[in-house]
Amino acid sequence: MAVRGEHVVVIGGAGFVGSHVCERLLHSGHRVTCVDSLLTGSADNVAALRGSDRFDVVCCDITLPPEKWPPFDPPSDVLHLASPASPKDYQRLPLATLRVGARGTEHALELATRHGARLVLSSTSEVYGDPVEHPQRETYWGNVNPIGPRSVYDEAKRYAEALVMAYHREYGTDVAIARVFNTYGPRMRADDGRMIPNFITQALRGRPLTVAGTGEQTRSVCYVDDTVSGLLALWRSDLTGPVNLGNPHEMTVRHVAEQIRDLTGTTSAVTTVPGAVDDPQRRCPDITLARTALGWQPEVPPREGLHRTVAWFATRAGSPLTPRT
């Protein structure tokens, strides 16, 4: 069995969060292989890492049988972050989303089990659906519509969690489950349809910021650096989980839009559009377990994280904007 951290395979490593995980691991001295189909990820996200002799990129669809994968060295650890994650993506790619949650997760587990590696699954707060418990604890079983337009993502992650625990019980595979709440930051796609990149892109273009529904529904938003710290703290631990990773500071969607409008200095209006089907009305994690078992909690205040994210988007867009502090 390889030593923990000797060679970490990050599945979905060219995605938004995955690329930050690869970067943090590499800068911490680990050898890293990024495995990604580039279905929703981007080679640009890891381009700056490719000069390192401790970093490799393998273009691979993990929903295919493993014998069809390009060869790469056995892992000491597997971090499984692969999946379309924005509603726009998983509703455009419903079957691909289900396949990566089911076949992809099983193939990742087979890889980890074969080599005695620890596997960390990046699951999601979406397993809680439109919750009737607030804030959401890991013991809550959720309130999910299994046939609605969001179900392909919700149920793919719920099935992936069940599969991870089945491998743990039947084969003794070393596993952990992270339930990641809304994460934002640099490297999000401007067109991915999620709340924060939508608002920032609209503000930078001088367009109205469109809030879905009433805007009074709540979210907890966690800056990507904090999410990565939580994922790696869970990976380094012996905890199985599931463990909530998110910011317990609850904000309305309208407040997020107003914060971004203020940071960009735009005079755009905040307007409303019809709400999405099955859109959760309240979302906030109870992170007691992460605090006590991992010593983890978010460190970046929401306004500071939004400031950094606006600055990154402004640079990418060639905007002369200097975000307000």
Rank of each mutant, 00 (worst) to 15 (best):
T113A: 13
Q136E: 14
A48E: 07
G230T: 11
F199W: 11
A96W: 01
G241L: 03
R282F: 08
I147E: 11
L239D: 04
V57P: 00
G29R: 05
N198H: 12
A212S: 15
Y140A: 04
R118Y: 08
R189V: 01
H134N: 12
A47I: 03
T266E: 08
V224C: 00
L232D: 01
M188V: 08
T266I: 13
A233P: 04
R254M: 14
L119I: 15
Q136T: 14
G101Y: 01
V144I: 15
H7K: 12
R92T: 15
V10F: 02
S319W: 00
T315S: 13
F55P: 00
D53R: 09
A108M: 04
G295L: 14
P285T: 11
R308W: 04
V273R: 15
G295R: 11
Q136K: 06
E110C: 15
L121M: 08
G41S: 05
V277N: 13
L81P: 03
P248I: 08
D53P: 06
V310S: 01
L81T: 04
L98E: 03
L234G: 02
Y90T: 03
D53S: 13
R50N: 06
I62Q: 02
Y223K: 05
R291G: 10
L204S: 02
T271L: 11
I287T: 11
D225N: 12
G230Q: 10
L321F: 07
R158I: 13
V127I: 15
D130Q: 06
G142A: 10
S19P: 02
T113M: 11
P87F: 05
R150C: 07
G246H: 04
P186G: 10
A48D: 13
D56P: 04
D56I: 06
T218R: 13
S86D: 00
P146F: 09
F72T: 04
A311C: 10
G148C: 06
T309P: 00
T309W: 00
L25P: 01
R4F: 10
A85C: 13
V8L: 09
S237D: 08
V57T: 10
D61H: 11
R219Y: 14
H30W: 05
L232R: 02
D73M: 10
T173Q: 03
P70D: 06
R291D: 10
G318C: 07
M188K: 06
G18A: 12
T139Q: 11
P248N: 09
V228K: 01
S37L: 04
P94W: 05
R189F: 06
G185Y: 01
T33E: 04
R158D: 01
Y171Q: 09
P71W: 11
D36T: 09
A190S: 12
E216I: 09
E250F: 04
A160D: 00
L234C: 11
I11C: 11
G101R: 01
C284K: 10
L294H: 04
L289A: 11
V253P: 00
E23I: 03
T252W: 07
G15L: 01
E258F: 07
T264C: 09
A43S: 09
V300W: 02
R158S: 08
P66Y: 12
H20W: 15
G12D: 04
Y90E: 02
A102Y: 14
G13M: 02
T201I: 06
V21M: 09
T271Q: 13
G101A: 05
L306G: 00
D278S: 15
F16N: 02
F16A: 03
A166L: 14
V224H: 00
T288H: 12
V277Q: 11
E138Q: 14
